[in-house]
Design a protein around this nucleic acid. Structure first.
Length: 878
DNA sequence: ATAGGGTTAG
């Protein structure tokens, strides 16, 4: 094994949910490696906090994790040098942003808040010329004639710059370039040519034409009028705006060799570029320190851009410190400051704090605007607080704050995710009637929403409408659709989308590959998933923690699939999937030669796996192979320094639940130990029946888990319980489940009349059934009457994203039947078991019932045997 | 030179 990864304690998964550490970079692991090389990742917090005093008295929720040693004690706490970055940072960090940024920035371009130059230094002739030029068709050659006509009346670079800027504001970059070419020949003085060049570069940059900007810049350098701070600043900004932050930094660094000193604007531009490119905060602080060292005083925009760096990473504590630093330096805050700070706090999952900050804005004479609201709304939504999000939306409408494209899309995606399509469609209508056309983000949100609900007809309709509206699908559209179809087992459709995606000339990214890999995993084709993992690595696309979590979680699924298919009433979806898969391969072979290498590889893997599925022999053999395979996967994860997170831990526990032997599970737990001692300690301890010894440790683990969003937390409880249940530690499982209930991990699990298991895994649900029935039993024994109707809801089972998979329902059915509990399936709802109060009460009073309900650990620590088992049974004499 | 939205694991 390569170097042991740093101890990472529990690591949350969503940037929005991180209450303690700036570890959202765990989520998109592959461009966030800087901290991983730091042996003490938690020092980061102390670095930040040393900037100024923590704005809040530390509370259990926001207190920084104590670091093992102090690395900041010798530094001046009032200086930014105390923020000096950790000794690592790879420039590759941003490389895989390319796929993402292209779409992000393209869609932003359409929003383009036009920048009106308020300069009145131009002449009225320039205005006239502008009007004439605007009238022309795109590549009308007579543009030069117009300019020639005006030549005598236009006075110098100010007029030409005005023309360029106004054309730029109208998106007319090709006309602007023509004007520029015309003007540059007329100007004699280098200084004026330089002005024109930097204006042109900045205009092209603003329009996202970064290549053209670069050409202008290079020509300018060659011709001798480009070596100005302004031209360099403009190019830095152009690169930054398009997300090419490495290029921005390169240009910035190259200034030295031209003997140019970056000014305030240059520094602001490069810091802004870093924010957009997702550069690690510590790396940006290096630039900031450089700025201070060179005597350039940061201003409001510098701080706003630094805040933006924090917001990207959800580094809310660092953001607060920057804010305090602004105050200390006497720099006023503006609406950008607040909105960016709020974004950082929201992305850090601190919604209550965000609300407080928003509330303090009016006192500073800064009124929350549409950006403030959409930031907050999105924050609440991401934190799983949709009600708060929608309340804020109503508040915003009540206040008469006009909605714009982003706010519409933000709220729309909330409705779509919740499956509230009527409201989503109403919003679409409202949007269009206020003159905002649906864009690719709108459509993607709708497609994702329908996909989540398995509404495939709607998907077809919306996808068709999207094309009819001439909105081009982008990488995210295709990823969404491929994922949706794969999860539904509709491989034919998935492959069609994949082919269309290739035809569109887009390059697969880590998300798309992860979706494909997950599809294979969910169908038990783990080894194929691993081949695809290799394939993507060869393509130069780095897997991230999500990719790995899919694969780990799939361990052992191949045998599960076989069981499910054997089961007479089970898994129609899988079988259907298999046949579609064959079909897809057959169709594809016809066009196989046309397809690129990548496609072939993906199609081949699908085909191989389809074939492999037919042969059901040598199951044990496969398990052995899979074990080797999965150990290889862990090895690779260490090698690539991909930091595990709590989903990884859940995945390992799930994998344990699929082990036939304790020994196999131990091998996996050993991997868990290498990742995180605390989680290992709890899982292993409970598994071994050392409950008393580890319960304290378990409590603090649960405390940490509770800080995450509900689905992450419940997944962890589910995984832990399943593993314990699987190995017969049923009392342990019950304790975990009760703890989860106490901590509201699964919302409203039970009342006297109803047990809602739909968010639970099968082990957790079964343990919960026992507990609930015991609870009801005590109600009966206390002499109370039970409600007339009792029901147990299973839903579709949280574990399976395959719509209609009734694994949980079947497990509960078997359990209830086995116990002789008088429940039956409700006619109108297959996922619901019902009974009547009197019947259940009578059953609970039977002499044998208690014994069936009380759970024990099969594997018990010797000293615990007497203590736990006997009192629970309440019947055996000592 | 500055702010907000859509995709993958659970």
């Amino acid at each position: 094994m390569a170097s042991t990864p740093p101890h990472c304690s529990l690591t949350a998964t969503k940037p929005y949910q991180n209450h303690q550490y700036p570890h959202n970079h765990l989520k998109n692991n592959n461009h966030r490696h800087a901290h991983q090389q730091n042996p003490h990742p938690h020092h980061w917090t102390s670095h930040k906090v040393s900037l100024t005093k923590p704005p809040l008295a530390p509370s259990p929720r926001n207190a920084p994790k104590p670091a093992a040693t102090s690395t900041t004690s010798t530094q001046n706490p009032n200086s930014f040098h105390s923020l000096s970055p950790l000794p690592s940072s790879k420039s590759e960090l941003t490389s895989d942003f390319s796929g993402r940024r292209s779409t992000r920035f393209v869609s932003k371009l359409h929003l383009g808040r036009p920048k009106y130059s308020m300069s009145t230094r131009h002449s009225s002739a320039a205005e006239e010329a502008l009007q004439q030029v605007i009238q022309l068709a795109k590549d009308d050659k007579s543009l030069d004639n117009i300019l020639l006509n005006f030549e005598g009346r236009l006075c110098g670079s100010d007029d030409y710059t005005f023309l360029l800027r106004e054309l730029g504001n109208r998106g007319e970059w090709s006309k602007a370039i023509r004007c520029f070419d015309f003007a540059i020949k007329r100007e004699r003085r280098k200084i004026d040519q330089g002005k024109l060049a930097s204006a042109m570069i900045s205009i092209l940059g603003r329009l996202g034409k970064v290549e053209l900007a670069k050409n202008i810049f290079e020509t300018a350098l060659e011709e001798g009028y480009g070596n100005t701070v302004y031209a360099f600043s403009a190019l830095v900004s152009a690169y930054g705006r398009s997300g090419y932050c490495n290029d921005a930094i390169r240009v910035f660094d190259s200034m030295k060799s031209y003997n140019l000193k970056p000014n305030l604007v240059t520094y602001n531009a490069v810091i802004d570029a870093c924010g957009k490119g997702g550069v690690d905060f510590n790396q940006v602080v290096v630039i900031f320190d450089d700025m201070l060292k060179n005597g350039v005083h940061p201003d409001r925009i510098t701080f706003n851009s630094l805040l933006a760096v924090c917001s990207r990473g959800g580094l809310w504590e660092a953001a607060r410190n920057l804010f305090s630093e602004m105050v200390n330096r006497g720099i006023d805050q503006d609406i950008f400051t607040y909105n960016t700070l709020l974004d950082a706090v929201c992305k850090g999952g601190q919604m209550d704090l965000a609300f407080e900050i928003m509330a303090e804005m009016p006192a500073k004479n800064l009124m929350p605007n549409v950006v403030t609201y959409s930031t907050m709304i999105d924050g609440y939504a991401k934190a799983g607080r949709s009600d708060d999000a929608l309340n804020l939306f109503n508040e915003m409408k009540f206040l008469g704050i006009g909605l714009d494209r982003v706010s519409y899309n933000t709220v729309l995606s909330i409705y779509a995710k919740l499956g509230r399509f009527e409201e989503a469609l109403d919003l679409c209508k409202e949007m269009e009637s206020s003159g905002i056309r649906k864009d690719v983000v709108t459509y993607n949100a709708l497609l994702g929403g329908y996909g989540k609900q398995g509404k495939y007809d709607e998907i077809k309709r919306v996808f068709g409408k999207m094309k009819a509206d001439r909105v081009s699908p982008n990488l995210l559209t295709y990823s969404t659709l491929i994922d949706v179809y794969s999860k539904g087992g509709m491989y034919k459709e998935a492959m069609e989308v994949f082919r269309e995606f290739k035809k569109a000339g887009l390059k697969a990214d880590v998300v798309l590959y992860s979706a494909l890999i997950d599809a294979l995993c969910k169908n038990g084709l783990v080894e194929s998933a691993v081949s695809l993992l290799d394939e993507m690595t060869k393509e130069g696309i780095k897997p991230n923690v999500v990719t790995y979590n899919s694969i780990i979680d799939a361990f052992g699924r191949s045998s599960t699939v076989e069981c499910a298919v054997d089961d007479s009433d089970g898994a129609p979806v899988l079988q259907k999937g298999a046949s579609n898969l064959n079909y897809a391969v057959a169709v594809d072979n016809k066009e196989g030669e046309e397809a690129g290498k990548e496609d072939n590889q993906i199609i081949k893997i699908f085909g191989q796996l389809a074939a492999e599925k037919g042969g059901q022999s040598k199951k044990d053999n496969r398990c052995r192979q899979e074990m080797l395979c999965i150990l290889g996967v862990f090895h690779k994860m260490h090698e690539l320094e991909i930091k595990p997170n709590v989903v990884t831990f859940s995945a390992i526990l799930n994998a344990c639940s699929r082990c036939n032997s304790f020994e196999d599970a131990s091998m996996l737990l050993e991997e868990l130990r290498l990742f995180d001692n605390q989680v290992y300690g709890v899982a292993h301890g409970l598994l071994m029946g050392h409950r008393d010894n580890v319960w304290g440790q378990a409590q603090s683990l649960f405390d940490e888990v509770k800080l995450m969003d509900s689905s992450t937390a419940s997944a962890f409880y589910n995984a832990l319980t399943d593993m314990l249940w699987h190995f017969g530690q049923k009392r342990g499982a019950e304790l975990v489940v009760l703890e989860g209930k106490r901590r509201q991990v699964w919302e409203n699990v039970w009342s006297d009349s109803c047990l809602d298991l739909h968010l639970m895994s099968s082990g957790a649900a079964r343990a919960m059934v026992h507990s609930w029935l015991l609870n009801i039993r005590s109600v009966v024994y206390e002499g109370h009457e039970l409600p007339k109707l009792l029901s147990i809801l299973t839903g579709w089972g949280k574990h399976s994203k395959v719509v209609g998979d009734g694994a949980l329902r079947r497990a509960i059915e078997v359990l209830l039947t086995g116990m002789g509990a008088p429940f039956w399936v409700a006619k109108c709802n297959l996922g619901r078991f019902i009974s009547t109060g009197p019947m259940v009460a009578a059953w609970l009073r039977e002499s044998g019932t208690l014994k069936v309900l009380v759970l024990h650990d099969d594997r018990n620590h010797p000293e615990n045997v007497r203590f736990h088992q006997i009192p629970n049974l309440q019947m055996l004499p000592l």
